Simulated assay, not measured.
Amino acid sequence: MSVDGVGTEQVGGGADEPGWDVDPDDESGVAVVAAVGRQIRAWREAAGMRACEFGAAIGYGEDLVRKVEGGRRIPRPEFLDRSDEVLGAGGKIAAMKRDVAQVRYPKKVRDLASVEARAVELAAYVAHGLHGLLQTPGHARALFEARQPPYSQDEVERMVAGRMARQAIFDRTPSPALSFVQEESALRRPIGGTLEWRRQLERLLEIGKLRNVILQVMPTHREAHPGMDGDIDVLKFKDGSAVGRSHGAFNGRRVTDAKQLRILELRYGVIRAEALTTRETLTLIEQVLGET
Rank of each mutant, 00 (worst) to 15 (best):
Y268D: 00
Q167K: 05
A140C: 06
D111K: 10
H225S: 07
E202H: 08
S175F: 08
D99F: 00
Q10L: 14
C52V: 14
D229P: 06
A242V: 03
G227S: 02
E53H: 03
R110L: 10
E206F: 13
E45D: 12
L134Q: 09
M96N: 03
N251I: 01
F180H: 03
M228N: 10
P226C: 08
Q135K: 08
G12S: 02
G71Y: 04
Q200V: 05
R279A: 15
R172Q: 14
A57R: 11
I285Y: 07
G227T: 00
G269K: 04
P174L: 03
W20I: 01
H221E: 06
G13N: 00
R189K: 13
G55Y: 03
E27P: 00
R262D: 15
T278P: 15
T8A: 09
D23S: 01
L276E: 07
L235R: 13
I169S: 06
E121V: 11
Q216S: 07
R253G: 05
A275L: 00
Q153V: 03
A177N: 13
V33H: 02
M1Q: 08
K107W: 12
G90N: 11
A124C: 01
R82M: 11
P137D: 05
G88V: 05
E155V: 01
D4M: 10
V288C: 06
G162F: 05
E183H: 09
R76S: 11
T194R: 15
G138T: 05
K108T: 12
G208R: 09
A117V: 01
V120G: 02
I271P: 08
G91V: 06
A113S: 04
V213N: 12
E206Y: 10
P24G: 03
Q153T: 04
L143M: 14
D231I: 00
V86E: 06
G7M: 04
E45W: 08
A224S: 12
T277Q: 11
A258D: 15
G252N: 07
K236E: 15
A242N: 02
G71D: 06
H131K: 00
V65F: 06
E45A: 08
F79E: 00
S152C: 08
G248E: 00
V6G: 11
A186W: 01
V68I: 12
G55W: 04
V22P: 08
Q216D: 11
F170V: 05
A168S: 15
R110G: 06
H128N: 07
V109R: 08
V255T: 10
R158F: 09
D154E: 15
G5V: 03
P150F: 09
R147S: 14
G88Y: 06
M228D: 14
P18I: 04
P226L: 03
T220L: 12
K259H: 11
G70F: 09
E27V: 15
E223K: 11
F144P: 08
K108V: 11
D26F: 15
S175N: 10
L122Q: 05
D81M: 06
S175P: 14
G19T: 07
V3L: 04
A123Y: 13
F250K: 02
G90K: 12
A127G: 13
E157D: 11
A95S: 15
L282M: 12
D231R: 04
R172A: 04
D26G: 00
K107S: 14
V126T: 14
G269C: 03
